[in-house]
Design a protein around this nucleic acid. Structure first.
Lengths: 339, 339
DNA sequence: CTGAAAGCGCTTACAG
DNA sequence: CTGAAAGCGCTTACAG
């Protein structure tokens, strides 16, 4: 009896009829609003149950107020950044109250604009824009009828609110871990130089070294974000004859490649050389040999914070500017010898 | 002038007023319905533009008919299966007409039920349930007021429609590729034995071998779905002293581990031993040394088909049972020597 | 070709 | 404590 028999769902009027009350009373009873006789409430509730009544959220949303939906637009569903962020968003919103429209703009600006319009037409309570890189992106503009929060990528309009990760701090903390565990001759292999993630992670490393009165071994080696470049760069580094006792890689993929080359050349990690990544891409970091010490960028937390900022904005407490979230070091076996 | 000045969005009434027509006429003009004077239409359209009018999809949805939304419930956002499927769904639905609610049940049945109810309350046109394994799962039941399609996992109720991948065929085709390229002594390393993916992929391999009058080298080696087991299993295999000229791995992760061990033992791939994976997890398969030949499970296509079946059901052309999609071999360098 | 009216399913003052 | 009425923003017969 708890299930609708078939194709369609009953409405409040039917519930009210079965309970022998008016629609208004049924509504109040079901929503625990104002004073309703206890017996009446019970009668309405059981009528609702018997009919398998599920309130129509469209009608509710039409009245104004919240619709209990938010839109997440991503440029990069394929990438591995969007997903943890999305999970964080769901965490914060509480899945049983707010549902998330996930839309992939696929890097197409026109499509992005259409998606925004589609979301507005469905009267979402807000939009979270998840970029694929930690770079600045064009603002969606100020005229939008719903609050927008930029996550990962940052808006170029300081009047917008962006939440992103702190790549400088990530590089800094990584280097700190290496230096604190006794390394002094650190080499650095990175990804594509134009990416702000590459630049800022390097910057963090250099900052720490300078704070400790140390110097980078050689120059930062920029290439692309692949295992292949990690392998090649490590080989170049070894062939340069420079001495080093640690390599900080700007990503876990790079670190995997580096580990391969070191292994092949018979260099022991971490005893002879410590290797560290950034990203904490678990499937890569955990399964490498040795398991990779890395920096977790806290993307799920980023998603949670972005969602909370959206709720703040909806509640009228809106802020602006860029909020950077701290990352944290995850120590595995590639930097510190096991006892 | 094209943007709303601020917080809210104007409605049809405002557009009609500005254009000097009635709401009904404005509606018809905007929706290209029935006969509307060309001049009137133009006037309404430009009024809409000037006001930054975006139709309220909630009001539209209230009228009955489609709401232009579907729900995708996944058990496994973290895993790498849900994402390509989701992209396929978006492909098929055409993002500018239909928006997708993405919900992660996080493996919790109660949460899944609540999500279904939330989706029904928003009057989605249909629900796609994406499981995390290619195993049978409990049906959501028959009483639902919207069509449901099961993707990847299959419903235990034959009255439901499920779309999944053909693991037997995947194993068969993988083995076929190996045998056709001259291998005759094939060993097999797999994941968790209870998973139907492990069982069925093995079955496909055995079917092909039997068709060709060949026998498996040793027994299938089941373990877990990790690089670590791939490395260990390869070592066990080598230490067994059995002769083999190919290893079919039931996943790309396993294959990565196998490649590591072979490399370490100085065995050349593919010259001495061919290694093949299944999944075509590109970031792993493409960056291994040598690049990994594997089987693409066509998950994005699976998403497209699931979405189309949902549309069929909405249109009254519903089907039932399990539909298996074929996979296809992706040849890279780990099975065939480069010229 | 255009518009007044009714209605989709709900909620919210407002009377009683 | 309960109900009749109005209204959210649209669309769709139905008159004109």
């Amino acid at each position: 009896m708890k299930e609708t028999t078939s194709g369609s769902v009953s409405n409040l009027a039917a519930v009210a009829r079965l309970a022998g009350v008016s629609a208004s009373t049924a509504s109040k009873a079901l929503n625990a609003r104002s004073d309703v006789n206890e017996a009446t409430r019970t009668r309405v509730e059981s009528a609702a149950r018997d009919l398998g009544y599920v309130p129509n959220a469209l009608a509710r949303g039409l009245m104004g107020g919240s619709t209990g939906t938010v839109g997440v637009i991503t440029t990069d569903l394929e990438g591995r950044f969007a997903l943890p962020i999305l999970m964080g968003v769901e965490d914060a919103l509480g899945i049983d109250r707010v549902l998330t429209f996930l839309c992939d703009a696929r890097g197409d600006d026109a499509r992005e604009r259409r998606l925004v319009e589609e979301l507005v037409s469905r009267r979402v309570d807000g939009i979270i824009l998840v970029g694929k890189q930690t770079d600045v992106r064009p603002s969606l503009g100020r005229g939008l009828p719903v609050p927008v929060v930029y996550a990962y990528s940052m808006s170029d309009d300081p009047a917008d609110l962006s939440v992103s990760v702190d790549n400088v701090q990530a590089g800094y903390m990584a280097a700190q871990h290496l230096v604190d565990s006794g390394r002094t001759k650190i080499a650095h292999i990175s990804g594509e130089a134009p990416h702000s993630a590459a630049q800022r992670r390097s910057q963090g490393l250099l900052n720490l070294l300078s704070d400790r009165g140390l110097e980078l071994t050689g120059q930062p080696m920029f290439g692309d974000w692949t295992e292949g470049w990690g392998r090649a760069a490590a080989a170049l580094l070894l062939d340069s004859g420079r001495e080093f006792d640690a390599i900080l890689c700007a990503s876990d993929q790079l670190a995997r490649g580096v580990l391969d080359t070191l292994h092949e050349r018979g260099i022991t990690v971490p005893t002879q050389v410590a290797v560290m990544g950034i990203d904490n891409w678990v499937v890569l970091a955990q399964n490498s040999r040795p398991a990779l010490t890395t920096v977790d960028m806290q993307l799920q937390k980023l998603g949670r914070v972005a969602a909370r900022r959206l709720q703040d904005a909806t509640a009228g407490r809106s802020s602006a500017g860029i909020e950077y979230l701290p990352s944290s070091v995850v120590i595995r076996d590639s930097t510190i010898p096991r006892l």
